[in-house]
Design a binder for these strands. Structure first.
Lengths: 213, 213
DNA sequence: TGCAAATGTGAGGACTCATCACATTTTAAT
DNA sequence: ATTAAAATGTGATGAGTCCTCACATTTGCA
């Protein structure tokens, strides 16, 4: 990744649309652009994705692409943002009504399985979160996402262990969540059998940490 | 990163020198190239590092650079390889004579501290392991490194718990190690105070997992 | 000394991201 | 319906990058 400009200019923290599409026509075009980008990322990865190809597949000109996305990273960011929004809603729902250790075990275990399957099945998601470390805006998005998800977990923990130090709970939840992402990334980069073992081991470690022994 | 060629061609798994320097003269020049690259990465990160600038700072021509390194990634890889070799030796030494739980606690805790300080102090190391996910060769190097380090840990665990399932020990050690790298990366990307908390929490979790309750 | 192998050079090829002056379509007010 | 302003669309072109290659120089050695 990284053309000349992005490398020289200070990497913008947030890559927002250069101009929000207000007409129906342009909203549809933006959708087509994102769909094209998604396809290309799935096929070749976001590094190999070429802006010209995105435009061509979306049936628009290069100029139109840059009218709604300030640069290449912004397209990837927009896709990532959708994934996080969707998954956050899912996680919040799963943890909403958990109020005892048994329920937490079930809900957490279920969530890990869902995530694992998602990582295995979604090449776009995989690519985006793999490249996460190289791009500042993406890194911040992932961090914010992780903090938000950890917060859901903290809410549950506070119910289960009202006497515990809140700061310690935050730290634990944040760490457990980030380690989950590590375990997923790791699991999909080795063969399936070892991947399954790693995910299972993570689940055990995390639960031991969350519900105590 | 990623110029046209590297993106199109199948990413080579191993980025080996195009031609090994046999004369004293060229060996010194290669050292200067690596030193220049190291400086530039520390200053601006490996993405922003420009091949022309590396050549200029090393006092050689672009052509000479490409005589010993097949492409840009190979330079970063060479630096990464040095770091891993050095740290593996350090880790092996620290764990070599550990044969009881108390000693493991001490040695592991010490190792984590050393790594944490290293991450805080070495911008090059930080940059390289951050970009790790985007580059196949680097990802594989890190994976191999992690497996090797986990192996040292497994050797210790087998001494402490001779009856345990070897495969389970492998999985645990590998996961614990990878999570350590996650914790480090995370710790240096937040403020110092939270970073310290995260590292401490990781240490506690890891030890609980390694030496049992 | 002579000659092959190793080493050194940098202008230029190939390709990329992103811009901008200009054309077209939509919206909305008269 | 007319018309002006706003939104949208276009693609040749600029700027910048990685890397190659034909050719020059230096070194090791018989």
């Amino acid at each position: 990744m990284e053309g000349k400009v992005a490398a020289k200019a200070e990497q913008a923290a947030i890559a927002s649309p250069r101009r929000a599409p207000t007409q129906q026509r342009s909203r549809e075009r933006v959708e087509r652009m994102l769909a094209a980008a998604s396809t290309l990322i799935a096929e070749q990865g976001s590094d190999a994705m070429r802006m010209g190809e995105v435009a061509e597949r979306a049936g628009v000109s290069i100029g139109s692409l840059y009218q709604f996305f300030p640069d290449k990273r912004a397209i990837v960011w927009a896709l990532a943002e959708r994934y996080t929004a969707e998954s956050q809603a899912c996680i919040a729902a799963a943890l909403k009504d958990v109020s005892d250790a048994e329920a937490l075990k079930r809900a957490f275990s279920e969530l890990v399985d869902i995530y694992y399957r998602l990582f295995l099945a979604e090449p776009v998601m995989r690519d985006i979160w793999s490249g996460t470390q190289a791009d500042k805006a993406l890194r911040e998005l992932e961090l914010a996402d992780s903090r938000a998800n950890a917060e859901f977990l903290v809410a549950v923990l506070k119910r289960l262990r009202p006497r515990a130090d809140p700061v310690a709970l935050e730290t634990t939840a944040f760490l457990v969540w980030q380690m989950g992402e590590t375990a997923m990334r790791l699991a999909i980069s080795v063969d399936r059998e070892e991947g399954d073992r790693l995910v299972a081991a993570y689940k055990r470690m995390a639960l031991r940490e969350l519900v105590g022994e």
